[in-house]
Nucleic acid binder design. Structure first.
Lengths: 116, 116
DNA sequence: TCTTAATATACATTGACATGTATATATACT
DNA sequence: AGTATATATACATGTCAATGTATATTAAGA
């Protein structure tokens, strides 16, 4: 067993990017597979500039990438940031694995013994 | 194998709550164990009203709970919302499991056959 | 009950970001 | 080259939420 070092500020940025509702919906859609901007606009019922803008933000955050197909831009999800967040949330599994109360009692004891 | 039904709007709300940097830091701290408001204030170097306000937001989102200990309020993490997000991010594992390119090719084919 | 400690709330201000509208760019087709 | 389609960018506006300051509440101790 080893401790995984994570880039906290990167995680924060990724989280903030995903948290916006329209971008969340775009991500949920792209999870089904690559989509063009037009398809995203139609499916989600948002304006085209609005979609492009959010896709830009997603792209700059490294969450999606695009390839050209004639005039179309086909967007798809990047694996890495989702993988990192998946690992980060795994680190909370101590909250629900084993017996929660035992864990909390342990932490309280540990904490009190430390003083502060 | 079954399909897990998730409450999307709850996930969004949880994500938005976690995404704020101070709350993210509070969560990272509480992952180590329960902490009083004063400890949180000292450790994170934020103002006391500021901490209380973020703790209230975290509490209303169901991410933390508090118990009284004299004048102190001891905050600790709730497992459920983190468990739900952990499961949600698991659903992205298709992005990095197996061969990504194969998956993408498959999705593109599938997508094109569907028309739009 | 008065004082101190710990935390919560109220309120005003500011700043960031989502949204709408207009326009620019890129590519294909005739 | 001119037109149509698809997408991106610019800019102005409005809104929400974080922050700071002051004050209220809760609990303990003398």
């Amino acid at each position: 067993m080893y401790i995984k070092i994570m880039n906290i500020s990167a995680l924060q940025h990724t989280l903030a990017t995903i948290a916006e509702p329209n971008r969340f919906n775009i991500i949920e859609l792209l999870k089904k597979g690559p989509r063009s901007v037009g398809e995203i606009v139609q499916t989600l019922g948002i304006s085209q500039p609005h979609a492009s803008r959010h896709l830009r933000i997603l792209s700059e955050a490294g969450l999606v990438r695009s390839r050209s197909k004639a005039q179309q831009r086909i967007y798809s999800l990047e694996a890495t940031p989702f993988q990192e967040l998946d690992e980060w949330f795994d680190s909370f599994s101590i909250l629900w694995e084993e017996r929660l109360d035992q864990f909390e009692d342990y932490m309280l004891d540990y904490h009190n013994k430390e003083g502060l």
